[in-house]
Amino acid sequence: MSAISDIGDKTGAALAASVKWAAGIIDPPLRWLQKKAGFNGMAAFFLAPNMLIFGIFILVPMVINFAYSMTGGGALFLPDRVFVGGDQYGRLLTCSDYSRPITCTEDQFWIAVRNTAIFVVVQVGLMIVLALTTALVLNKSLRARSFWRAVFFFPVLLSPVVVGLIWRWILQRQGLLNYILFQFGIEPTVWLTDRFWAFVAAVGVSIWAHMGFYALILLAGLQAIPKDLYEAAEMDGTRPARVFWRITLPLLGPNLLVVLVLALIRAVQIFDEVFVLTGGGPGTSTLFITQYIYEIGFASVLRNPGLAAAASILMGAVLVVLTLIQLGVGRRKDPKEAAK
């Protein structure tokens, strides 16, 4: 063991030395640059690498996304594409009866929109209630609180693929869930091939994977509530339910709003764990917008990058509105919260 840590220490030291050496060797040319550009000119030098990568891989795509959404055909590069104006948006948004996705020109898009809308409402609603309950429970005087916090938080770090596969394994025909239900005399169901249950599974699994994150934010909010308020309530002999409605909930309000908007933003983009779990099926019962964009832009035989770009801009518009609300809420409370 000590030999291993010894090797670790030695490689660490060697690594640190070589990094130090590299940092030292670029100092003279940078001094020369500084002489030419001045103190503030060096700001440009420090910004350059990040802005270059940011510009190429985020800013440029953001801008040309609009151009893509107004072109047609299957060509990949923008100069080869045909300008079609608002046709892609028209195609996405045309329905003869808006209550029935099947009557739309792009019925898949409308099915995805409807699925996503239901998913967002159900998943976010349930998850916030569960996260708040968890935070309240963890805020009590518990022995080994960090252990219990870890229990609820642990799935947050798992990759969507791992989450999807764990639950596919549990929900399959001869899986654990069917065995447990069998013990209670309930007939086995093939959960993921049933339209209704597959959707329920998508909601449940995504709550399982993300709930701990929101519980943690709410727990931090609960711990920030001044203790003397509770002491005052104690002196007056206030009932716990009243303490919750009159002290805890109002003071937790800003945190709850941040959590709500964050959860909404992520639920709108739901993709990976559901994609691994159900692949969007059975049929289109768990097809969500991001998967629609992925299918139409990359995976489908009838690839249509223009249509995918138009759909992603519509989704982006929803996200921008949500983020602006979040930034407004976050700014009022604490500038640090606005950092994401």
């Binding site: 800013l59 893509y68 590069f77 770009a309 992603s312 602006l324």
Partner: peptide, 30 residues
């Protein structure tokens, strides 16, 4: 400096899943 801050702030709203198609073309072009 404020412009740079604003640009970075603005992209917080735009996750990768919104720019898949144009990002794919940029990455391919490079």
């Amino acid at each position: 400096r404020n412009l740079v801050m604003f640009l970075i702030l603005a992209t917080l709203m735009v996750p990768l899943s919104v720019i898949l198609v144009p990002l794919y073309s940029v990455v391919s072009a490079l």
